[in-house]
Simulated scan of single mutants.
Amino acid sequence: MSNLAYQIQQRRKIEEQQQQQKQIQHPTKKKLQTTMGENTLFLLFAFVVVIGSIVMVSNSAKIYSVNSEISELQVSIDTQVKTNADLDQQVMELSTYKRIWTKAHELGLMLNENNVKVVQD
């Protein structure tokens, strides 16, 4: 009888060990929990990303407005250069010797060669 009792105890021990091994092999899945520090770091990172993107968009808007002003000024400069060139051309046309001589005769001026002096360097 004692041998039979011993065998029953052995079986129970073996069954308990098998149950413990089954429990060890299949641990319960733990829920991933984040700490307060991790949440703070995540929020800080998100805040930095949002602020950085806002700064980049505002800078690109400023650059666009400056570029449009530059192009407007360039157009204004080009038109002024063209106007200056046209005025220079008019000056050249109006300051020809023949035109000046004609205007002088219209105003009653005469060329007196005795009053003309030649200046040399």
Rank of each mutant, 00 (worst) to 15 (best):
V55G: 10
Q25W: 00
V49H: 04
M110P: 00
K62Q: 13
K117Y: 02
Y64P: 01
V49I: 14
K30R: 06
E93F: 03
L41S: 15
K30A: 04
R99I: 00
L4V: 06
Q9S: 06
G52L: 02
K30M: 04
I24Y: 03
R12N: 04
V75H: 04
S76R: 04
V75E: 05
K103I: 12
S95E: 07
S53G: 10
H26M: 05
E72K: 08
L41P: 00
Q18H: 10
R12P: 00
V48D: 01
M1L: 05
K29P: 00
R11N: 06
A5P: 02
V81C: 04
Q10E: 06
S58D: 09
L4M: 09
E69Q: 13
K62I: 15
Q20W: 03
Y64N: 15
G37H: 13
D88I: 12
T96N: 13
S95C: 08
Q19L: 11
D121C: 04
Q74I: 11
R12K: 14
T28N: 06
R99Y: 06
S2G: 14
R12I: 12
I70R: 02
I54C: 15
N112R: 01
Q9Y: 01
T96G: 13
R12M: 08
V50S: 11
T40N: 13
Q33E: 11
Q89S: 10
F47N: 12
S95W: 04
T96L: 05
T102R: 05
V50C: 09
W101N: 12
Q23C: 04
S76V: 02
L107G: 07
T102C: 01
K31S: 02
M56T: 11
V55D: 00
V57P: 00
Q18K: 14
D78E: 10
P27Q: 13
V66T: 12
N59R: 08
N115S: 10
V91T: 14
Q90E: 14
S71G: 03
I63S: 08
Y6A: 14
K13H: 07
T40K: 03
S65A: 11
K62M: 12
K29F: 01
Q18F: 00
Q74W: 03
S60A: 13
V81E: 00
I70C: 05
Q90L: 15
F45G: 08
S2P: 07
N39F: 05
V49E: 03
Q10N: 05
M110H: 10
M92V: 06
M56L: 14
K103R: 07
N115A: 10
G37L: 15
K29S: 06
M56Y: 14
S68M: 11
P27H: 08
V116W: 01
I100F: 07
L44H: 09
R12V: 08
N3G: 10
L94A: 05
K62P: 00
Q33I: 06
E69K: 02
I14W: 10
T102I: 13
S2L: 08
E38G: 04
K117T: 06
S2A: 09
V66A: 15
S60Y: 11
S71E: 11
I54V: 15
Q90N: 09
D78P: 00
Q90P: 00
I77Y: 12
K98T: 13
I70F: 03
E38M: 04
I51K: 06
H105R: 15
Q89M: 05
D86H: 03
E15G: 03
V50H: 02
L73V: 04
K29W: 02
M56N: 09
